[in-house]
Amino acid sequence: MTLSSDHISLKDTWTDARLLFALEEVVEKELNRHLAVAKDWMPHEYVPWSEGRNFDGPLGGEPWAPEQSKVTDVGRTALVVNLLTEDNLPSYHHEIATLFGRDGAWGTWVHRWTAEEGRHGIVMRDYLLTTRAVDPVELENFRMQHMSEGFEFDHPESMLHSVSYVAFQELATRISHRNTGHHSGDPVCDRMLSRIATDENLHMVFYRNLLRAAFELAPDRTMCAVRDVVVNFRMPGHGIPGFERAAARMALGGIYNMRIHHDDVLQPVLRFLKVMEVDGLGPEGQRAQEEVGMYMNGLDAEARKFDERLAARLARQAARKNG
C-alpha cells in the first residue's frame, strides 16, 4: 500500500485522531479480508458433553478431585491461565473500543473481534468443566478476582502503542494456546485449542498489517511504540492470581518461555515489518530502532542461558528416572 504525499507531509504532526482517520481505509480493507477468510465455528461441537456429570452442591453430585483430570499437570496450569486471560474480554473490549471508537470500520472490527474472542472463553470453560480438567471452585474464585481487577493497556493514552501491543500479544496468545494443546495429553483439548489458535492468528495478521500501514504514515512514532512494547512486553494475564508461579511452570513445560517469546513471537512480527530496515527515521526513531536491536540481542542471550539450564534440568530428571 502506498500512502499519499499529503499523509507523509504530516508525519511530524500525527495525533491519535489523525492516525485513526488516516488508517480507517486500511482497517476497512483488513476487515473485509478477515471476513473473507475467517470460518465460523460452533463452540459446542468441540466439547465432549457425554463425559459430563454433576458436581457437588445443590445438585448433590461428585466433588472434584485431581485424579479426575485427564490433562497433564502443566496442561492444567496453562489451561487455567489461558482461560482466565480470555475471561477478561469485557476489559479488553472497553480498552480497544475507547481507543478505536465504535463507529465506521474501526467500530465494526472492534465488535467483530470481541464476538470472535467470546467463543474462546465459552468453549474452554465448557471443556474444562465437562471433562473435570480443573478445580471448578478454584477456577471461579480466580475468575472473580481477576475480572474484578480488570485490565488496562500499559500505554492507555496511545493508539499506536495499543496497536503495537496487540500485534505481538495475539501471536503470543496463539502460541500459548497451541503449545498448551500439544502438552495437554488430551487429543480433544488439542483440537479445541488448535481451533482457538487459528482465530488468534487471524487477529494477529489484522493488527500486524495495520501496524505496517502505521509505519508508512508515522515511522518515528510507530518505531518508538514498537520499542516500548517489545522492551516492556507483558502478557495480558499478568494480573492472574499466582501468575508468576504458573508462568514458571509453563516456561519449564515448554509452553511459553523466553526462547519461544524471542523466536516465535517477537522475531516473526519484527521480521515481517522489517523493523530493523526502516530508513528515513529522525533521531528519536533511530534511537528506538537501535534499542529494539539491542534488546533482541540481549533477549537471545538470556534465552540461550535458559535453554542450557532447562536442558540440564531435563537431563537430571532423566538420570533419576533411569537410575
Rank of each mutant, 00 (worst) to 15 (best):
H155A: 15
L99K: 06
R320Y: 06
T173R: 01
P58L: 15
I96M: 07
R304S: 12
V166Q: 00
F168M: 06
K321W: 10
P90F: 03
Y295N: 09
E284S: 12
P136F: 06
G107E: 03
M258Y: 06
P156D: 07
A78L: 05
Y127A: 03
L139H: 00
L84F: 07
T85I: 10
L217G: 01
G57Y: 08
A115K: 13
R287L: 13
V229L: 10
K39T: 14
L79M: 15
V265N: 03
L160C: 12
A247E: 00
R119P: 12
P236A: 06
L79P: 00
P236Y: 01
A218K: 00
R119I: 12
P90K: 06
L193K: 04
R249G: 09
G104L: 04
D87Y: 08
M124W: 04
V166T: 07
E200R: 07
P156R: 05
L84R: 04
V71F: 04
E170S: 04
D103N: 15
R119C: 12
P219Q: 04
G118H: 02
A172K: 02
D6P: 07
T98N: 13
S176A: 15
E95Y: 03
Q169A: 14
A172H: 01
R132G: 01
E67T: 12
F142T: 02
A303N: 09
V26I: 06
E140K: 11
G282C: 14
E24V: 12
D228K: 03
W41I: 08
P90G: 01
G57M: 04
M235G: 09
Y295L: 09
V134P: 01
D186F: 01
D220S: 09
H146N: 15
G282W: 07
Q267C: 10
T72R: 07
F243K: 05
D40W: 11
S158F: 00
F233P: 13
H34D: 10
E24S: 12
A319P: 07
E291N: 14
A22M: 05
N141L: 14
N88K: 07
Y92L: 11
L139K: 00
G60F: 06
N297H: 11
P268R: 07
D228S: 14
F243Y: 15
A197Q: 05
L210K: 10
D87E: 15
